[in-house]
Amino acid sequence: MRVMVADDAALFRAGVARLLTDAGFEVAAAVPDAQALLAAVAADPPDAVLVDIRMPPTHTTEGLDAAATLRERHPGVGVLVLSAHVEPHYALALIESGASGAGYLLKERVADVDELADAVRRVAAGGLVVDPSVVAALVGRARAHSPLDELSAREREVLAVMAEGRSNQAICHRLYLSPKTVEAYVRSVFTKLGLHQGPDDNRRVLAVLTFLRG
């Protein structure tokens, strides 16, 4: 699998590239800013890119802006946005844009090579990845009555794991439930949130949005 890395910190950029190479990925480019990333992708699109949320020249939202541009120009390229801090509003903006093959991960997760590799593979396959810390921050906000109040404690646990972009199989492992039990809980979540029609992938994204918005 071919990936590209964009981060203005040379040591971090080189470190991530090395970790990905050791994990079996081909790092096609490692660049210091968003414009260089966009040019590299345009020249030879990879399967996925990892991009820092803050890069030159303003160090604000260059990574998110690059992610939006890549979704328009290269929808088949997975985008994993990396952030040094928990910034839930940026993660929510990424999800609400309707992006597939997108993710938001804290840089501290990079130290866990297996987790990083799994996140890259999931966005490359069109999945959604949200850092567990960001999910927790969003869910912890004060909120008024919402459809989530109709969910049982176990259904909320299932939806919380789903919000990280995990599959039913991953939910089974995390919560020690059988596949049929997880399927039943997922169906119940869809029903209680009013998501009665449409492909399961779309309903999962809509359910996650409901959960994160609170």
Rank of each mutant, 00 (worst) to 15 (best):
R2A: 11
R2N: 10
V3I: 12
M4Q: 09
D8H: 06
D8R: 05
L11A: 13
L11N: 13
V16C: 09
V16S: 10
V16K: 09
V16W: 08
L19V: 14
T21I: 08
D22R: 12
A23F: 00
E26R: 13
V27K: 01
V27E: 06
A28Q: 05
V31I: 11
P32N: 10
P32M: 10
Q35R: 14
L38K: 06
A39E: 11
A40T: 13
V41L: 12
D44A: 15
P45R: 06
L50I: 10
I53N: 05
R54D: 12
M55F: 10
M55A: 14
P56G: 10
P57I: 07
T60Y: 11
T61A: 14
T61I: 14
G63M: 08
L64R: 03
A68H: 07
T69D: 13
V77P: 07
L82N: 04
L82P: 01
E87D: 14
A91M: 09
I95Q: 01
I95E: 06
I95L: 15
E96K: 10
E96G: 09
G98L: 10
A99W: 07
A99G: 07
S100M: 13
A102I: 03
G103M: 08
L105Q: 05
L105S: 01
K107W: 00
V110K: 00
V110N: 02
A111I: 14
D114I: 12
D114M: 11
A119G: 01
A119K: 02
A124M: 04
A125F: 02
G127A: 08
D131Y: 02
D131V: 08
S133P: 06
S133A: 15
V134D: 04
A137N: 06
R141W: 02
S146L: 07
S152W: 03
E155Q: 01
R156C: 00
R156N: 02
V158P: 00
A160R: 05
V161D: 04
G165C: 00
A170L: 09
C172P: 02
H173L: 13
R174K: 15
L175N: 07
Y176P: 04
T181G: 08
E183R: 15
A184S: 15
Y185S: 04
V189N: 00
V189L: 05
F190Q: 10
T191F: 13
K192R: 14
L193F: 03
L193P: 02
L195Y: 07
N202V: 15
N202Q: 15
R203L: 08
R204H: 09
V205G: 06
A207Q: 04
A207Y: 07
V208Y: 05
F211A: 02
R213F: 10
G214Y: 04
